[in-house]
Structure formats: structure tokens, C-alpha cells
Nucleic acid binder design. Structure first.
Lengths: 164, 164
DNA sequence: GTTATTGCAAATGATTTGCACAAGG
DNA sequence: CCTTGTGCAAATCATTTGCAATAAC
């Protein structure tokens, strides 16, 4: 993981006169070890594997801190539980496409769309702050050949398919 | 209200061999009497004013039916409760801008953005189905003059400001 | 030492559900 | 009639919170 993220978090924690704890460190490390989206429960289970007495409460509380610190973002990809995205540090303005066939989530960036959105925002009399695009789409391969490569890939990798 | 919507709902209900009831009729009428976004609780309170023994359960169940029928859409404008938007029949591809100063929600349509999104979707190997843009923006007037016209308008009209 | 943090279990709050009675067709 | 809908209250489920014990600084 990029140790720099941990540093940034600890600066944030210090600035708020909060405390650096082993639990917070390990949760932050666990989150930014991958670039995968996750729910609180998934993260909790991940943490539990290495620390048998970690608590859900601390996981929830640390996630909130990370969101306040601007290091983590809640995203909307459907589902009952909130989903978090650790990739906004690398790609500050990316968006999400969700495949309605397999649930796969694809991240993408598009400068032109960002620009157009800013125009619309100003035309409406507002100052652009943040924008996000949510696309639901079907798999083209599935329609043409009856095979969804993402679904296959998902099966192979054992990745959980998000129920919508 | 456009009685045609009620008709469409009742066709849907019949197709599923469900039943047309006075409660469903009155809930559908209540929703499409305005073009305002609402939460289940707000709708329930609205219904309660005219029908003292209406139940939350039926409101929730009817909302679900309307969403399945494609007549109502859940939208994401933050907040803990789900928000529903009855305006997709008139504007099938509109988006939402939320003012971070006053919580006002502005609907807008933009064909160019829709087109660009479709391009991106195809480039990624998917078939466009549905897309939505969520913009958070600050009030330009507030920054320049210290006055947010929406906030004023909201106060005057007594409209509830969504907490975020 | 003083203040913040943790883990637990209990609380919360929106939404869902089981069930007995009522209503639609 | 027979089946689906309603209203009520209880259940659910993710998330939050109070609190006593523990760890930072």
C-alpha cells in the first residue's frame, strides 16, 4: 500500500486532536491495500481474519473518519449496504458503470463529460463542486454471442456479484 | 393529475393479476398530483391527511409496484430515506443538481451529455440502458452577494430543506 | 493523569413481513 | 367463494450509540 495515505490520515487525525491507534492504522492499511470497492461488512470480515477481536463499531467509525478526511468516498452502485471506493485519490473524477447482466462495476474517466457538466452547472447559476455519473448498461457480448465475459471472469475469480 | 398515469398503472396491475383497490388509486393520485420528489414518510403523511386509516405498509407496497411498473423512479439526492421522483414520464432522461448551500434540487436535461455517456458506454463494450448524473454545486449568488436566492425562496414557500 | 478509543450490547430507524380480517372480481 | 390487499404490530437489518474498561499522549 501507499504509506503516504496512512500518513495523510494520521495528519488529519492529529489536526483534529484525535489519536493514532493500532486499530485505525490496520483498517486504513486494509482498505488501501486493494483498489476494490467494499461494504462495511466486507471490510469487517477482512479485518477479522487477522484480528479476532476487531469490532464492527470501530470499522464503521474509521470509515466515517476516512470519508471526512476526503480519503474515501461513498459511492452508489445499488444494494442495501453502503459501498465505499478507495480509488478517488488516484482518479479524483472517475465514474461508475454497472453491468446489469453480471453486476460488474467498471470505473471510467471522461474529461469531456466533466467539462459539459460544469457548463450545465454554471448555466443553472451554480458553482461546480462535485459530480458523478452512474451508468447502467448491458453486456454487448452477451447480447451478440450469449456469453458475458465479465460473468465468466467473475466466476473464475470467485468475486462476489453484487445483487441489485 | 393526468388520469392516463392511473390508467397505465391499472393496466400494469391487471397484467399481473393483481387488484385495483381504492388505496392504490388514491396513492397513485396523490403522487402524481404534484411534480415534487418525496420520501415514503412524506407520502404517508400526505395520504393520512385525507385517509385516517391508511397504513405505511400499503404506501411502501404501492411505491414498489409503481417502481416496478416503470412509472416512478428512486433517485439519489442523499439523506437517510429513499427519495422518489414522479417526473420521469415527462422527462425520461433528466438529471439532478443538489445545491450544497440550501439543499434545493434542480432538474435538468442535456442531450449532449446523454450522447457522450452513450459513447463512453459503447467504447467500454456495453449497451447503454440508463444513466444518471448527480451534481453537487454551490450557489453562485451566495458566494458573490452573500445571499442564496434558493434559500430565500425556500423559506418563503415553506418548503422543507433536505438535510444532507 | 487526562482525554480519546475500543468492544460490547443495546438502541435506532427505515423498511419489510406475518397474520387475521376485509375487499375485489 | 377464492384470492389478493390492508392494517396492525412485530421482525429485520444496517448503522449508531451508551458505557465501562483500555490505550494514547
Amino acid at each position: 500500500m501507499d504509506e503516504q495515505i496512512l500518513e495523510r490520515f494520521n495528519e488529519f487525525v492529529k489536526r483534529r486532536s484525535l489519536r493514532r491507534t493500532t486499530q485505525r492504522d490496520s483498517i486504513v492499511r486494509s482498505i488501501f491495500a486493494k483498489d476494490e470497492h467494499f461494504t462495511s461488512e466486507e471490510l469487517f470480515e477482512r479485518i477479522r481474519r487477522t484480528d479476532k477481536r476487531a469490532s464492527r463499531a470501530t470499522v464503521y467509525r474509521t470509515i466515517s473518519l476516512l470519508v471526512e478526511a476526503g480519503l474515501l468516498r461513498e459511492i452508489d452502485i445499488g444494494g442495501e449496504e453502503k459501498t465505499y471506493d478507495p480509488n478517488f485519490l488516484d482518479k479524483p473524477s472517475h465514474n461508475h458503470l454497472v453491468c446489469i447482466d453480471c453486476g460488474k462495476v467498471v470505473e471510467f474517466e471522461d474529461l469531456n463529460i466533466d467539462l459539459l457538466n460544469d457548463c450545465v452547472t454554471r448555466r443553472l447559476g451554480f458553482r461546480p463542486m462535485r459530480q458523478s455519473i452512474h451508468i447502467e448498461a448491458g453486456c454487448e457480448q452477451l447480447r451478440l454471442k450469449g456469453i458475458c465475459p465479465n460473468l465468466l471472469a467473475t466466476r473464475l475469480s470467485g468475486k462476489r456479484i453484487k445483487k441489485r
